[in-house]
C-alpha cells in the first residue's frame, strides 16, 4: 500500500447474473490518494465491479466498504465518469455540469461558484451554453468529468472513460486528468481495456483473469508522480506494460484456442 489510509475496501466480492458467474473472490483495498487501474479481457466484469463500488449493482457475495460504511446504494462522495458520457442532450454544458449539485440540493451560491470553476478546470470555458450535440467526443467527456468533479467527490470511478475517444484526444485527456488529480488527489478506480492507459494512470494495476474472473495479479507501477509525457518513454513504463501485456495475452490466446476447439 503506497498511501496513507484505505478508502475503499473490497472483501470477497463476487457477482452472478443468473447462472453466469462473472467474477469471484475479489479482495482489494484502495487508498485515499491512490489510482488503481483495472484491466482484463472483455467480459471479465471490470465495469460490473465498478458498478458494484458505486452501488448501482449489488454484488452476490462479499462486501464493499467506503470509509468504513457498507455500500448499499450510490454513496455520497463517489462520482462516476461513464464510457458513454451520459450527458443529457436537452441540457447545456452548464446544466449538465450542475446536475449532481442540483440533485444534491446544493445552495445556489455554491452552484454559481462551483460550476463555472469546474467548466474552466476541464478547459471548456466559453462552451457553457453549448448543447452536447455541438461538442466533439472529447469535449463531451470533459463535460462528464466536470460534472463528476463538481460534486467534490473523494472517490472517482472511471468506467473506460476515454474508450470511445480518438487516440490523440485520449492522450491529451489522460494527461489533463493526471494534472487535475495532482491538484486534488483522491481515490480513483480506473477501468480500461488499454494496457498503456492502465499503466500510465495507475499506482497499481489490477489484472483480472479467468472465468469467472478474479484478481490474477496486482502490479505496482512504481512510476514517479507527477506523471508527464516522459513517463511514456521510460524503461520502467515499458517494462510494466510488457509485463501486464504478457499476463493478458496468455489469457487471450487460451480463449482463442478454446474457441477453435468449440468450432
Amino acid at each position: 500500500m503506497s498511501t496513507e489510509g484505505v478508502r475503499i475496501r473490497i472483501a470477497g466480492v463476487g457477482k452472478e447474473f443468473g447462472a453466469l458467474r462473472v467474477f469471484q473472490n475479489i479482495d482489494l483495498e484502495i487508498g485515499e490518494r491512490e489510482i488503481v487501474s483495472i484491466v482484463g479481457p472483455s467480459g471479465c466484469g471490470k465495469t460490473t465491479l465498478l458498478r458494484c463500488i458505486d452501488g448501482l449493482v449489488k454484488p452476490t457475495e462479499g462486501e464493499i466498504r467506503i470509509d468504513g460504511t457498507a455500500v448499499t446504494g450510490p454513496p455520497r462522495g463517489v462520482a462516476v465518469v461513464f464510457q458513454h458520457f451520459g450527458l443529457f442532450p436537452w441540457k447545456t454544458v452548464y446544466e449538465n455540469v450542475a446536475y449532481g449539485l442540483r440533485l444534491a440540493k446544493a445552495p445556489k451560491e455554491h452552484i454559481r461558484e462551483s460550476v463555472p470553476r469546474h467548466i474552466e478546470l476541464v478547459g471548456l470555458k466559453g462552451f457553457e451554453k453549448a448543447y452536447p450535440y455541438q461538442l466533439s467526443g472529447g469535449m463531451q467527456q470533459r463535460t462528464g468529468l466536470a460534472r463528476a468533479l463538481a460534486t467534490d467527490p473523494h472517490v472517482l470511478l472511471m468506467d473506460e472513460p476515454f474508450a470511445s475517444i480518438d487516440a490523440q484526444t485520449r492522450e491529451i485527456l489522460q494527461f489533463e486528468l493526471l494534472r487535475i488529480w495532482e491538484s486534488r488527489p483522491m481515490s480513483m478506480v480506473f477501468v480500461t481495456h488499454s494496457i498503456e492507459e492502465a499503466v500510465l494512470m495507475g499506482d497499481r494495476v489490477v489484472v483480472l483473469r479467468g472465468r469467472p474472473s478474479s484478481v490474477h495479479e496486482v502490479i505496482e507501477t512504481g512510476l514517479p508522480r507527477p506523471r508527464t509525457r516522459d513517463v511514456l518513454s521510460s524503461p520502467r513504463f515499458n517494462e510494466v506494460r510488457d509485463h501486464v501485456w504478457s499476463r493478458l495475452m496468455h489469457e487471450a490466446e487460451q480463449a482463442e484456442r478454446e474457441l477453435q476447439e468449440v468450432r
Binding site: 448501482l56 462520482a79 461513464f82 458513454h84 443529457f88 442532450p89 436537452w90 449532481g100 440533485l103
Partner: peptide
Amino acid sequence: SSFVEVAQSYHARWWNVWFGIALPS
C-alpha cells in the same frame, strides 16, 4: 438506460427520474 444510470449514480429519486429524465427524453 444510460441516462437512468447516470441519474441514479447522482442519487436521483423516482420523481427526478420521471420528470427530470424520462419526460424530457
